[in-house]
Design a protein around this nucleic acid. Sequence first.
DNA 1: GATACGGTCTGGTACGTACCAGTCGAGCAT
DNA 2: ATGCTCGACTGGTACGTACCAGACCGTATC
Lengths: 250, 250
Amino acid sequence: MAAEVSTRDVVITDGPRPKHAQLTDLLTAMATAELGAGASIPSERELMTTYDVSRATVRKAIDTLISDGLLERVHGKGTFVARPRLESRLHLASFSQDMRRRGLTPSTRLLTLEADRPPAEVARALGLRRTGVAWRLSRVRLADGQPIALEDGWYPRAALPGLDTHDLGGSLYELFADAYGLVIDRAEQTLWGESADSATARRLEAPVHTPLLVFRRISTADGRPLEHVVSRYRGDRYQIHMSLDQDRTG
Amino acid sequence: MAAEVSTRDVVITDGPRPKHAQLTDLLTAMATAELGAGASIPSERELMTTYDVSRATVRKAIDTLISDGLLERVHGKGTFVARPRLESRLHLASFSQDMRRRGLTPSTRLLTLEADRPPAEVARALGLRRTGVAWRLSRVRLADGQPIALEDGWYPRAALPGLDTHDLGGSLYELFADAYGLVIDRAEQTLWGESADSATARRLEAPVHTPLLVFRRISTADGRPLEHVVSRYRGDRYQIHMSLDQDRTG
DNA sequence: GATACGGTCTGGTACGTACCAGTCGAGCAT
DNA sequence: ATGCTCGACTGGTACGTACCAGACCGTATC
C-alpha cells in the first residue's frame, strides 16, 4: 500500500474553507484514526506552531470537537479523545406518550369532536360498513405549550361508545386501554411531505410554506382497526430517528 | 408580587466566577424568562456595551448556549432563542424495495463521483482512517423516469477500492454485496422536513418551496460503516410506509 | 410597482497580547 | 527514602484590533 499522509504533513491555508474548520477536520482524523479513545492530542501551543494558526483558532476547532463529543479537556493536563456515547431506542406510542418520554409536557387544543359518516377511504380502513358512523376528532397537539402537530382522526363509534363523554386531552391509547379494554398493539403508517397552507400555518403558529411531515396512521387492537388519523408535524422542528435492520425474510 | 430584577440591572463583575459564565446565566434567564422561543436576544455589540465585557466574552457565552441548544445564530440577522428539536423512532423499508413494490422502475442520473475528503461529521460517522478520503457520490434517483430524490453520499475508499470503475446506476447495496462481499445489514436514519431551494428544485424538476423529506442515513455492514448519505425526496410525490409494533419490553 | 444600490445593522474569522490556574516531574533538602 | 518547592508544561480567561460576509431597509430610478 502506498505511504499514507500523516496529519502532520497537512497544511492549513487561507481559502474558502475557514481555518478553524480545516483544523477541526484534521483533528478529527487524528483523534479517530491515529490516536483512539483516551489518548491525548498535541497541546494547543503545539498545534499553533505545527499548523501556523493562532491559539484562538486552535481553541475554536477544539471547542467544536468538544461540543460534538469527540474530545474532552482537562485543565492543566491536556486534551483527550473522548470515549463514544450510548444510544437509546423507541417504539409505538401515542403523541402524549412520545412527548412524555422526552420530558416534555403534552397538551391538547380540541378543535372538533362529532359523530359523522367518514369518507370512503377512512371507512374502508376502519372496516366500517357503508352506513357506519365514526367519531371525528381534530386536535392541535402541543409540547411544553408549543404547537407541534395538527391531528385529524376518525374512531369507530360502535367500538368506542360514549367517547365524547371522556376527557380527550390526553393519550387516546391510554384511554382505549383503560375505558374500553382495547390495547393498541400495531399500526401501519404512511408519511409524506406537505407545505403548510395559511390555515394550517396559523394553527401551528408557523409561517406559510413551512415544510410539514404528514403521517397517516391506521392503528389496530388485536387486529381490529380503531384509529385512522392524519397528523401534520412541523418538519423544520420535528425529526424522526429510526433504526433499519436487514429484512429477515430476504 | 415583589418587583423582579431585570436582567438589564445585573452587573458582571470580576470575581471567582468567570465573566463568560455569569453572562451565560444571565442570557439563559433572559432567554427563558423574558423572551421565549423565537425571540432575538440583544446583539453581540449591544451586550458588550450593556455589560461592559469584550465581544469575545459575549461570543463565548453565546457559544455555550448554542452548544446547549438554547440559542441559535443566523449570520447577518441575529441570535435567537431556539426551540428544542423533537424526536421519535420508527421502522422503515428501503427506497429500492419501495419503488419495486410499487411496480415502478428505479433509475439514476449520476451527478458527481470523486474521491475527496469528507466533512468532519461524515468522516466521524464513517470511522474513517487518517487519510480521510471517501468517494463522494451525488445522484438524482428516478422512478419510471420521474425525479424522486436527490442523494449526496459518502463511501470510504479504503473499504471500497475501485468503486469508480463500477456501474453506479443501480443499487449500491447490491454492488457492495456482489463486488466486495459487504452486506449492508443495518442503518441509522434521521428524517426531517425542508423546503426546496432553487438549485434542488431544478434538479428534482419541481417548483421552489416544494416540501422535501430529508433522510440522513448511516449504513453498516457487520458493524462497519459504509455509507453516509443525505437524500432529499419530493415530499409531495413520495410517501413512506412503515409498520409499528407494540413495545415488547413494555 | 419593481428593481437596484448603498448604508447600517448583524454575525463570522483571525490574529494578537497578557495573565491566571491546574498538573506534574525533577531536584534538593532533610 | 520522603517531602517540599519550583519550573515547565498544560488549559482558562479576558481583552483588543481589523476585516469579511450576510440580512435588511430606505431611497432613488425606471
